[in-house]
């Protein structure tokens, strides 16, 4: 190197919107290795290994079918109950996992962050990708169940064109969880009590999303309060998911566009606040 130019600088203040995307690209190998680490360590530490990926949604579906479907008798838009619930649970789990894991990213990685520099965004990104593996496995379970109901039980449901929106939905769920999670993670470095709120909050949020009931029922029974469910950005995502795979659900371009808008806004805000906190967070732990 024979130029006098300095190739890097460290400044006291950084631009809020300097996302260092080229740096993240340079560290892409780390992203994959972290995903691998998550998967391998999970696999090695458990007896049942990847079977856990199945057990959780399966049992939740069974319980939901009994409690909400049979005991409470909540409508499932004429769909087989287990299928209805599993669609909701599979999608919801991915979002919820992304959100909760991302929200503790500073706390969980304080040790590494305090000793080595790498673009911090790699960590939340690796969480989203790791969870994608899990989501993929659960999708297989969901598809198997669809096949079972179609060929064995002979239940009526139909796949619609909206299934082509599946990749969009997955990206939306990932980014929504990522954005909200990063905002929370940035805030928990200062106000620890927020961390307790997350698990609880996610649980509550599930009931404000159309996981265990269809949007149509909510509007019909509680016309006054249905807006809470309607303006929850996860609702259009899950509704679209159900509409695509099972042919029932309230799909509209408007609401999906709304969910996209909220996702983008949260994501941008999340990245900005994350980048800001990341620069000095080691001083406060």
């Amino acid at each position: 190197m024979h130029n006098d130019e300095h190739t890097w600088t460290i400044e006291a203040k950084a631009s809020l919107f300097d996302l260092k995307l080229n740096e993240i690209w340079a560290y892409r190998d780390l992203l994959w290795l972290l995903v691998r680490r998550d998967f391998v360590s999970f696999y090695k530490q458990t007896i049942l290994g990847p079977l856990w990926f199945f057990i959780q949604p399966l049992f939740t579906t069974i319980i939901f079918t009994f409690i909400f479907g049979n005991l409470a008798g909540i409508s499932t838009d004429g769909l087989p109950k287990p299928l209805f619930y599993m669609a909701g649970i599979t999608a919801w789990n991915y979002f919820a996992d992304c959100l909760t894991k991302t929200s503790t990213v500073f706390k969980d990685n304080a040790n590494i962050f305090g000793k080595v520099y790498f673009p911090r965004l790699i960590m939340p990104l690796s969480i989203v990708v790791s969870n994608l593996v899990r989501f993929g496995v659960q999708m297989i379970l969901f598809l198997l169940m669809m096949a079972y109901y179609h060929f064995v039980v002979g239940a009526s449901f139909n796949i619609t064109w909206a299934i082509t929106l599946f990749p969009v939905i997955v990206v939306l769920m990932a980014l929504l969880g990522l954005g909200a999670g990063m905002i929370i993670s940035a805030m928990t470095t200062k106000y620890r009590d927020l961390a307790f709120l997350v698990t609880f909050g996610v649980q509550l949020l599930m009931y404000a999303t159309t996981v265990i009931y269809p949007l149509s029922t909510a509007i019909e029974k509680y016309p006054k309060y249905a807006w809470i469910v309607k303006y929850n950005p996860m609702t259009p995502i899950i509704e679209t998911f159900r509409y695509g795979f099972l042919g029932e659900g309230s799909f509209s371009w408007g609401s999906l566009g709304y969910a996209t808008g909220v996702t983008v806004a949260l994501l941008i805000f999340g990245i900005v606040i994350f980048n800001k906190v990341e620069r000095n967070f080691v001083d406060t732990v």
Partner: peptide, 24 residues
Amino acid sequence: ILSKVTAPTTGRISGKGRIASLLE
């Protein structure tokens, strides 16, 4: 600060070439 683990309060550092830091 040189390892970019934490940011300075004021001032600036400029440098040439890749940094490897071994704090641990």
